[in-house]
Every structure is written in structure tokens, then in C-alpha cells.
Design a protein around this nucleic acid. Structure first.
Lengths: 110, 110
DNA sequence: GCTCGGTATGTCATATTGGACATAGGGCGC
DNA sequence: GCGCCCTATGTCCAATATGACATACCGAGC
């Protein structure tokens, strides 16, 4: 995991750094986080592409701007449920979502 | 939506039936449920294919058999987070997961 | 340098999900 | 019929996510 990504994760509230790279209970968790990151990025991309603001998306979702911001930051406190609901709300098809998920395919950092 | 599926959803705790088929706030929710169903099915398939019992999977997850059962039933009380964690725990790759999601592509019932 | 639309971050109270446990149902071999 | 293994269902309480709100930040235009 490169430092930029690591920093991003920590900012999102994910105590990374320590064990997760060698303790072998954690790789699954790492994969999971990768997934979340990929979807978070996807939400942001599709939202912007749709010309929606965070506020607008929040309304569509019956949620709030702060939650959308956290979602796009892949913050610890947001679930995949919300992310997928968001993607669907934006108009993404399962196919689109599948593509995003594939982006999480472990680009194993050497 | 055919009756068999509808019944399945209701059993899983999803008050379906009523509005969700014409009230146009709900189609997104329907898509979301389709997604969950697809993943639930995927979990069961992969688990069985791996020769794991629900108990065994639960242990891998640090969860309990009952939760695995509910998960595979796509019960309301289980989140996508748990489902995806499960899939990863079983050894599914993002590519595998993407395939499952594609299965949720709206087979629009006429 | 002010305002303004947009985004980020933190904190609450409430709602929902989490694992645990108890128990019931369903094969299956004996 | 009985034990055995697996799965299903329901209910607890603790843990976590939710929307709301408040507030800070940031760039662009004036």
C-alpha cells in the first residue's frame, strides 16, 4: 500500500498502518476497504458527471450533505448500503457498479 | 415481479407487495433489493461450493450461524457490508463479486 | 476582502445492525 | 423412533450507522 493511499485511509478514519499489512487476519479487511474506496470514487465520479451537488444527491437519497461527503471520502462510518443506494439513485446500473467493483481488483502493491 | 420472488422477499422481512411496484419512489429500492438477493444467493453458492457449513463461515467471519442464515435469506436485518465481507472471506475476488452484481441487472418483468 | 455555492468535518439523539443465544425444523443413518 | 448435523427463525443488548445540524473550509466572481 503506498503512502498516499494510506494517508487517505487514515483521514477517513481507518486506523491503517499498523497490523493490516502483515497480520494475516487483516488482508480481507484490506480488500474490503479497497472495495469501499472504489465505490466511493465511483459515487463521486458519477455524481459529478450527472451535474449533481452533494446537496442534490442527499435530497434524492433522503439523506444529508454531510453524509454524502463522508461517503465520497469512504469514511469509516458509512456503509456499502448507502453507497450502493447512492449509485442506484444516480442512475448507475448493476453493470456500472460491477465495473466499479472490478476496479478494486487487488493491484497488489509489490 | 413474479409471485415466487415476492413471497421470498416478504419472508425475508421486506414488506413488498403494496406500493413498490407503481409508486415511483420505490424502483430504486427494488433495484437495491435485487442486488441484495443476488449477493445473498452468491454467498450461499460460494459457501456450499467451498464445502463450508454456515457455522464454519460464521467462524471465519467472527459472526454467528444465525447471521449467516439470515444473510443467505437476504433478510432485512443484514447489510451489504456483511455480505461482501463474507464473500471476501470465502475467497471471492472483486471480479467474482462483480459477476454476482451483474446478475441483478434488471430482468425487467414485463 | 466579502459573499456565495459547494464541500469537509465534528457532534449529537435515534434507529438499525451486530453477535449471541435459544429453539425449532429438516434430512439421514441407524 | 432417536440422535446427529445443518439450517431457519426469533429475541435479547451492545455496537455502529443514520440524518440533522452547526461550523469550518475553499475557490470564484465581484
Amino acid at each position: 500500500m503506498n503512502n498516499a493511499k494510506k494517508a487517505r485511509l487514515e483521514e477517513a478514519g481507518w486506523k491503517v498502518g499498523d497490523a493490516s499489512e502483515f497480520l494475516n487476519l487483516e488482508p480481507k479487511e484490506a480488500q474490503f476497504v479497497e472495495l469501499k474506496l472504489a465505490l466511493a470514487t465511483g459515487v463521486r465520479q458519477l455524481r459529478e458527471r450527472s451535474g449533481l451537488t452533494q446537496v442534490a444527491l442527499a435530497e434524492k437519497l433522503g439523506s444529508s450533505q454531510s453524509r454524502v461527503a463522508k461517503m465520497e471520502a469512504a469514511h469509516r462510518s458509512v456503509t456499502l448500503d448507502l453507497m450502493l443506494r447512492s449509485l442506484l439513485a444516480i442512475g448507475a446500473t448493476p453493470g456500472d457498479i460491477a465495473k466499479l467493483i472490478k476496479r478494486a481488483e487487488t493491484h497488489r502493491a509489490a
